[in-house]
Design a binder for these strands. Structure first.
Length: 426
DNA sequence: TCTGGGGTCCTAGGACCC
DNA sequence: TCTGGGGTCCTAGGACCC
């Protein structure tokens, strides 16, 4: 058996934790740039604020119901997530942290326990230790556990826990679930399935397997197997190293000048390089993109992208930055209002992998020595920024000007930044 | 005026190899 | 005139997840 533990309206719950006055009120957390709703309290859902909906379209509703708005505060959410996960890790030998607000526990071998009671105990403990409310679904496969947790969340009478064990219980649950709400079946496949008169999760479980394999490919076939109680998705106990690393942002106000766009790209490239080193990896491809608003009139739209291949995989900020700057140089077109840009690193391998050294014919600097110096420099950079806070030491070209994003409703980083919670008297 | 960010996996098709 | 067979690797695009 697997359990899926899912934090309820996670970001909103984090904000409420430090602001109990928000309980019972409609609360939403906005995406970067204060754009869309990315977390909503039950009260906010009830008045019709949709997930991913742009906030400006709901202005009246927001005022009318005095909805509390928050800018996304990821340092806070990340830290609270870690606390929840640490608490959960005590309840099972194997745990997979699936996302910032969800994790799977392996409950095989817990057959002798009263799983329902155990789940309620987990719920209470998490609430007591961290203040975050969670829902728990239990089933024979990850997909069934997911379905169960959805039920636990939707159906208040279950008290936050749903256990799918008997055939009758499973059939009952699946028959009440629209096919597009199955984990791994999204809007597009949902629409396709409805056109073929497959409306519920139970319909999908019973659909002809070859047809599913043909039309929804191997991923869909696995989902079907899992719904029928045959586990195809094992727990991932160690997070596999990332295959790509991306840093991108929308701008608070459009950027026109190349220099300003460059500042942003340099900043994103530095962040990417840092994430890469944290992963103990190296990348061989650097992609830069910059684009106008997709909502701009057609003739004012532009989507520029450029990928450069490095002579050898690297995680050196200086090198990655040089490549990113060159890429931007190539894709930049004068006269557009850029609304978003980003840097993507790919072709990623571990630093422990033997590096094929491509020596340049014209390189007079002996390569290993050069790399050694670069590595020491990066080590010092990361150590200082860890000790004194991100951005303490950075490249001169990494200056944020102009392209700043909007974050008008930002709460303090209560658990990770002293300066946010204490006033330092001079 | 204002519309997020960061990932994964799979497939088809083309280029290329012997 | 007739023009193979068996591979690999890479990329773009489409689907999905939170």
């Amino acid at each position: 058996m697997f359990a899926l533990i899912d934090c309820n309206n996670f970001y909103v719950s984090c904000e409420r934790l430090f602001n109990p006055g928000l309980r019972g009120r409609p609360v939403v957390v906005l995406s970067n740039n204060d754009g869309c709703f990315i977390s909503r309290s039950e009260e906010a859902k009830a008045i019709g604020l949709g997930m991913g909906e742009p906030a400006f379209k709901c202005r009246e509703l927001l005022q009318q119901h005095r909805v509390a708005l928050y800018s996304a505060n990821f340092p806070l959410y990340g830290d609270l997530s870690a606390r929840v996960m640490r608490t959960l890790a005590d309840f099972a030998p194997d745990i997979e942290i699936y996302s910032i607000d969800e994790c799977f526990l392996d409950l095989s071998g817990f057959g002798r326990f009263d799983l329902d009671r155990y789940a309620r105990q987990i719920r209470q403990t998490v609430e007591k230790h961290t203040g975050i409310p969670v829902s728990i679904g239990i089933g024979a496969t990850k997909t069934l556990a997911k379905a169960a947790s959805r039920m636990a969340k939707k159906n208040a009478s279950l008290g936050g826990v749903s256990l799918l064990r008997t055939d009758a219980g499973i059939r009952d649950a699946l028959s009440g679930m629209a096919v597009e709400h199955i984990w791994g079946i999204g809007r597009r496949y949902g629409a396709l399935l409805h056109r073929h008169r497959i409306h519920t999760a139970l319909d999908f479980a019973a659909a002809p397997a070859p047809w599913v394999r043909r039309n929804l490919h191997i991923t869909g076939a696995r989902v079907q197997e899992e719904l029928n109680g045959r586990s195809c998705l094992p727990l991932e106990l160690v997070r596999p190293p990332k295959q790509s690393i991306c840093t991108s942002r929308s701008f608070g106000t459009p950027v026109i000048a190349k220099e300003e766009l460059q500042h942003a790209v340099v900043h994103f490239a530095s962040k990417c390089a840092f994430k890469l080193r944290r992963e103990e990896s190296r990348a061989s491809l650097v992609t830069v993109f910059a684009c106008t608003s997709p909502f701009a009139p057609k003739e004012k739209r532009y989507w520029g992208t450029e990928t450069l291949s490095l002579p050898a995989p690297s995680n050196d900020t200086l090198l990655l930055l040089k490549a990113a700057t060159l890429a931007l140089e190539r894709l930049y077109r004068r006269g557009y209002e850029y609304k978003k840009a980003g840097v993507i690193l790919s072709g990623i391998g571990s630093v422990s992998e033997p590096q094929q050294t491509t020596l340049s014919l014209f390189d007079t600097d002996p390569l290993p020595e050069k790399q050694g110096r670069a590595a020491s420099l990066m080590e010092a950079l990361d150590a200082l920024n860890f000790r004194y806070g991100p951005g303490t030491l950075r490249l001169a070209s990494d200056c944020s000007s102009g392209w700043k994003q909007r974050q008008e409703k930002l709460s303090p980083a209560y658990t990770t930044r002293w300066s946010d919670i204490i006033e330092v008297k001079p």
